[in-house]
């Protein structure tokens, strides 16, 4: 028995090592490439980032797109999921299918569909609000059309995160208890359900953020330049800088993930030390 356990430990260690190498070697190579210089080690690729043309604009645009996407997605999904859970539980599978559907639509197909819709519009409609809306959502300063696309793409991820959060909470009883204590429907949801979905909301937000930070296909085909597209364009002319940006965006993602984990841990810590 002891021999079996020690053999299992060796296997576990080996798998962990291999998995670690699989992830770490490309990262280490990227970091090395970004700082390697003919004269030794140089951080020019990193220090030059801020002054690189388009860096700030594309990063700000991406963060704005991510923030708006997260807000729109949560405003759409959370009330819908709670309403279905409370009022029409039989519709849950329908909602699940609808929200999971974008998973099977490749971004290229989605973008092709979007282009088809956006390009449609006969001349006689040019002065109508309908046509102007099409123009408005394609402004390069803030392309709302990307938000629409990202909301669709992030729908399955956010749905899964929120669904697992809602499964852990007895939504009906908590809402009824809150209403029994004098809370109206909206107050019951805001005061009781949302605080208990904190982890799920953070998860959904993080996954959406990660998706928007790394999304390339749709933005590129539609001709906008958020961060991922900018990295690609920089890569064509300044290879070292594009890898430095990639490493940096990976670090940003990690930091966000750690913040999320820390937020969850802080809550657990708070609740367990209260005794």
């Amino acid at each position: 028995m002891a021999q079996l356990i020690s053999r299992l430990r060796v296997w576990r260690g080996a798998v962990l090592l291999l998995a670690g190498l699989y992830f770490l070697i490309p990262m280490a190579a990227s970091v090395w490439f970004s700082i390697d210089d003919a004269n030794g080690i140089s951080f020019d690729a990193y220090t030059g980032l801020l002054s690189a043309p388009g860096f700030t604009d594309s990063l700000v645009l991406t963060l704005e797109l991510a923030a708006v996407t997260v807000v729109v997605l949560l405003l759409l999904l959370v009330p819908a999921m709670i309403a279905v859970r409370l009022g029409a539980p039989k519709l849950r599978p329908v909602l699940e299918v609808v929200c999971t559907l974008p998973l099977v639509v490749p971004p290229v197909a989605l973008t092709a569909g979007l282009i088809g819709v956006l390009r449609w519009g006969p001349d006689y409609l040019m002065d109508t609000p309908f046509f102007q809306t099409f123009v408005f959502i394609q402004q390069p300063e803030f392309p709302l059309v990307l938000v629409i696309a990202y909301v669709l793409m992030a729908l399955p991820l956010a749905y899964r995160a929120l669904d697992s959060g809602l499964r852990a909470v007895d939504v009906r009883t908590l809402v009824e208890a809150a209403r029994n204590c004098g809370a109206s429907w909206p107050r019951a949801v805001v005061s009781v359900i949302l605080p208990n979905l904190r982890g799920a909301l953070l998860n959904a937000s993080f996954l959406t953020l990660a998706l928007v930070l790394g999304e390339f296909t749709t933005a590129s085909i539609l001709g906008f330049q958020p961060f991922a597209v900018w990295i690609y364009s920089v890569g064509n002319s300044q290879g070292q800088m594009s890898v430095a940006v990639s490493v940096l965006s990976l670090l940003i993602t990690w930091v966000l993930l750690l913040l999320l984990a820390a937020a969850g841990r802080e809550r657990r810590h708070k609740t367990t030390t209260a005794s």
Binding site: V169, D170, T173, L174, E176, A177, A178, R179, N180, C181, G182, A183, S184, A188, V192, P195, N196, R198
Partner: peptide
């Protein structure tokens, strides 16, 4: 329901976890 002036104790534990 929220204006009925009736206090209720539920079968399942219904305290607000947070």
């Amino acid at each position: 329901a929220h204006k009925r002036d009736a206090g209720m104790v539920f079968q399942s534990y219904s305290l607000f976890p947070h």
